[in-house]
C-alpha cells in the first residue's frame, strides 16, 4: 500500500498497461517538444523577447519624435501617427493610456517599440487577443505584420493602479 514500506523487491520495470501508457505519454511529450522549435522556424507568430535597455524619459522622447515626424491626424485629442512601411513605430504605455494611435497598412511589417513610463503594463490587442508584457526600462520590439484591416483596440491587462480599466488605445489598419 502507498502508506506502507514497500516489498523489498520493488525496483522492477513496468509491464503491461503501465508500460504501454508510459510509451504513449513519452511519444506525446516528444510531439510537444518538437512543436515549439518547429513553429519558431516555420510559424508566423513567435515571442522572441527582442528588447533593449532604455530609460523611461528617453523612450518618451523617442515617442514624441516619432509622433512629430509621422503625425497624420488626431482623434479626441490623441495624435494618429503613420509609420513608414518596414519602419519603426513607437507605443508608450503609461498610467492610464496607450499613446499614440497607430495607423498601419495591412500586409506591411513594422518594428513596434513598446515601453512604459511608469509601472508594468499589458499590451493586449483586441479582438485578435495578442498579448505582450511591457516593462519600464525595456524597449520591447515586436516585428508586427497586420493581416487584417479595420479598427482595433488596445487594452491593458497588467494591473497598473486604480485607473487600470481606463487604459485603452487604438490601432487603425488600412487595407
Amino acid at each position: 500500500m502507498s502508506i506502507h514500506v514497500p516489498a523489498a523487491d520493488w525496483f522492477k520495470a513496468p509491464t503491461g498497461g503501465e508500460r504501454t501508457w508510459i510509451g504513449l505519454a513519452l511519444a506525446w511529450c516528444v510531439v510537444l517538444s518538437v512543436a515549439m522549435p518547429y513553429w519558431h522556424l516555420r510559424g508566423k507568430q513567435n515571442s522572441t523577447g527582442e528588447a533593449y535597455a532604455v530609460e523611461p524619459m528617453k523612450f518618451s522622447e523617442r515617442v514624441e519624435a516619432f509622433v512629430a515626424s509621422n503625425k497624420v491626424g488626431e482623434e479626441n485629442g490623441v495624435p494618429v501617427v503613420q509609420p513608414a512601411p518596414g519602419g519603426d513605430a513607437y507605443l508608450l504605455a503609461q498610467m492610464w493610456r496607450w499613446y499614440p494611435i497607430l495607423k498601419l497598412k495591412q500586409g506591411q511589417s513594422y518594428r513596434v517599440h513598446l515601453s512604459s513610463l511608469d509601472l508594468q503594463h499589458g499590451f493586449s490587442l483586441q479582438p485578435m487577443n495578442m498579448n505582450f508584457q511591457v516593462l519600464p526600462g525595456y524597449d520591447h520590439v515586436l516585428t508586427l505584420t497586420p493581416t487584417s484591416s479595420g479598427s482595433f483596440t488596445i487594452i491593458c491587462n497588467e494591473f497598473c493602479g486604480i485607473g487600470h480599466h481606463l487604459m485603452t488605445g487604438r490601432v487603425i489598419v488600412e487595407p
Binding site: Q45, N46, E50, M130, L142
Partner: peptide, 30 residues
C-alpha cells in the same frame, strides 16, 4: 484506466492543436 487515459490523450491533442490553429489566425509577430 486505459480508456480514461486514452480519452485524456485524445482531448489533449484536440485542445492543443485547436490552439495552434487559433494562433495561426492572428497577425504575424516575431
Amino acid at each position: 484506466t486505459m480508456t480514461l487515459v486514452l480519452a485524456l490523450l485524445a482531448s489533449f491533442a484536440v485542445y492543443y492543436f485547436a490552439n495552434w490553429k487559433a494562433l495561426a489566425d492572428t497577425w504575424h509577430v516575431r
